[in-house]
Design a protein around this nucleic acid. Sequence first.
DNA 1: TGTACATCAGTGAACGCGCGTTCACTGATGTAC
DNA 2: TGTACATCAGTGAACGCGCGTTCACTGATGTAC
Lengths: 203, 203
Amino acid sequence: MRYKEDHKNTTRRRVVEAASARFRKHGIGAVGVAKLMGDAGLTHGGFYSHFPSKEALVAEAIVDAMDVTCECGKSVPESLAHFFRTGDLEAFIRAYLRPDHRDQPDTGCIAAALVAEISRHPKPTRAAFTKKLSGVLTMIEAALPKPDPAVAQALFATLMGTLQLARAVADAALSNQILASGEAAALALIHTKRKSGRTPPTT
Amino acid sequence: MRYKEDHKNTTRRRVVEAASARFRKHGIGAVGVAKLMGDAGLTHGGFYSHFPSKEALVAEAIVDAMDVTCECGKSVPESLAHFFRTGDLEAFIRAYLRPDHRDQPDTGCIAAALVAEISRHPKPTRAAFTKKLSGVLTMIEAALPKPDPAVAQALFATLMGTLQLARAVADAALSNQILASGEAAALALIHTKRKSGRTPPTT
DNA sequence: TGTACATCAGTGAACGCGCGTTCACTGATGTAC
DNA sequence: TGTACATCAGTGAACGCGCGTTCACTGATGTAC
């Protein structure tokens, strides 16, 4: 065997990480293979010895960026990753809706940056996203005062929607207001007492 | 004057409407000028006698699709437009989170389909979006049991986030669950008693 | 009424560019002698 | 120890294609005579 054991794996990881940041910042369709490889200090030709297609990298970059639990995924802001270790849901909500997260999409939640684009990608890519999302939802649910999958889902949707709206708006004051409104709603949501019959049927 | 009074205006409108549907379905970046003009039964060359740039059309298509109030904007599903006439917020929430809206993005809410992409567009485009969004938020606020801009903002973010999540997920059952969870959270939100802390709703 | 004309909405070739993907190659590497 | 070698990660030219934009033109139109 030539080259060190995991030389190629290291390079591969560099590409995946560069991709997950670029995609979040500019959108998937707006970033070409050549630029991605350039980020990793390589030329575009070698791409296909690492991945069968751009779409395969897309799926892998999404999975990587959704993997908030593992220590290796350094891309997610410390404040967000911290919640997953401590299970402090209120701290997570506040961190998620902080202005820094709004202003740094490249290191932030990949769902907020790319959900709509993901929904237009082929099923395998969406399936990879779905699997990781389920994991995140389960962790959120476990951290709820009264665990309930419906509340976890609604909470995540609210956080995502709020962050996206705050990012799109061209008025700084309104953007900050939106973050604050979303935070209040999210905090209220996790303390809701629901009627037991309200939960939607499973499967 | 050659050609009828508003011959050119009619053509222009056809292009804007085709664009707002195509953009919602495939994303802004994924739809070229040639395809847009083809939709309107024209060739690409004439585009620049109607619009100074693709970006100008983008802004106009967004504004057009956000204009739910006027009768002419037929693109938005009847059920959604209906709310704006009656002010029935609960009906609006239910209509917004119905599976048909999830399954037909091209005639649905343009914010849900394109917020993230809009946030990466030049400021003039974002400003146009912001202006129309403010109008929608004001109308939602007015329809609240207890008018409050923060609740209107959080409600819109929740609806948008829920619809997007339901669209991206590759599992039909989970997608339906997400819609139901978002609906419950949205309905709870508008009945929240704010001010005196985070009292859960009675409904 | 019919014809000649000016207008201008719409046409389609052309521009430079970047896309995703393929492929024959180069040259740095660790190993064997 | 030094050298010759096989491996294979990475290179860069090339492919067909679609992008946004420009521009000289064509030909359908309503008007003037």
